[in-house]
Design a protein around this nucleic acid. Structure first.
Length: 302
DNA sequence: GGTAGACCTGGACGC
DNA sequence: GCGTCCAGGTCTACC
């Protein structure tokens, strides 16, 4: 199988990226622990759906791909650069955190990059699917969404049952989700009350009324970016902070029940706390607040 | 600005 | 197998 090497700005640690959060467990990602291989089913801009396998190449990411045209290879390289944040620079964060014992490992393990999907649309939807539910349900909803509405590696031709198990699917496009209905999303994908929000976002993006992908490269201040993310139904303070982290803006902390638990165990003897206490503990980290929180060496991370 | 309650799913638990 | 309870953020109404 052909392969391409996509280089990373140093320092880089493949394992740190794929372990940065739970994204590798969400379809169309999959992970094989014994070989430390991350896989992803990618839909190219031409509509072709391909299977990618990522391996550690020390100086970057080695990507196993099917035979592709030159333009397709360039597109894959660009997507991989985004997904792994290969061009990102965390030197200022490492300098700011070098004296903090709880962040000693940050530079050593090249922490800072968080695994992303190729499109912001996919990351927004996945983030909405993490809200107000348990992780197993998030995994189920994502898998159903991909299986029901995603384009397949086999194209449109009909596949016999024995072969169909080998066919993989990409994350659905905004158009595919927009063409479904809130009722379908609720009843088939089991997304519950999130159905109208998910469908509405797909319609906004598919119709061209909301250029979500442009936020990936936007240079507007973080507060303004946050404001735009909060216009999305289903995206509240937690989801917006999570998405800002994925966008490389680290001024906000995604405060969920896990954050409250960790901060409470660290500084408040496990007693009930509010978001205010979390903010207070990380206030001094300023523009690195999100990074300091995300990569903090917690006393009890169970 | 702060707070209470509804929104859903699915896992855990008791019977 | 069935019913009940509970965890998990966002949104809206209300104070």
């Amino acid at each position: 199988m052909p392969a391409i090497l996509v280089s990373a700005r140093k320092p880089f640690n493949f394992t740190s990226v794929i372990n940065s959060h739970g994204w590798r467990q969400l379809a169309p990602f999959s992970y094989e622990e014994t070989t430390n291989t991350l896989s992803y089913v990618l839909r190219l801009s031409t509509g072709r759906v391909i299977d990618l396998h990522f391996h550690d190449a020390k100086e970057g990411v080695n990507v196993q791909i099917p035979k592709l045209e030159r333009g397709e290879r360039t597109e894959v390289a660009d997507k991989v650069t985004w997904m792994f944040g290969l061009d990102m620079d965390f030197s200022h964060f490492y300098a700011a955190s070098h004296a903090e014992p709880k962040l000693l490992h940050a530079k050593k393990l090249a922490r800072g990059r968080v695994l992303r999907s190729p499109t912001l649309f996919e990351d927004v939807l996945k983030t909405i699917l993490t809200t107000n539910t348990l992780w197993t349900a998030t995994r189920n909803m994502t898998l159903k969404l991909v299986n029901e509405l995603g384009a397949s590696t086999a194209g449109r031709e009909k596949i016999d049952p024995p072969l169909s198990a080998m066919i993989k699917k990409a994350f659905p496009t905004p158009e595919a989700i927009a063409a479904s209905s809130p009722e379908f999303l609720k009843e088939k994908i089991r997304v519950g009350y999130r159905a109208p929000a998910i469908h509405q976002l797909a319609v906004r993006v598919a119709s061209g009324n909301f250029d979500l992908e442009s936020l990936k490269t936007s240079d507007v201040p973080t507060l303004e970016l946050r404001k735009q993310l909060l216009t999305i139904n289903g995206v509240g303070p937690y989801a917006a902070a999570n998405l800002l982290m994925l966008l490389g803006r680290h001024d906000f902390i995604p405060i969920d029940s896990y954050a409250l638990k960790m901060v409470s165990n660290e500084w408040y003897r496990g007693e009930p706390i509010t978001a205010k206490e979390v903010e207070k503990r990380f206030e001094k980290w300023g523009e690195f607040k999100g990074l300091a929180f995300w990569f903090w060496d917690w006393k009890d991370n169970g």
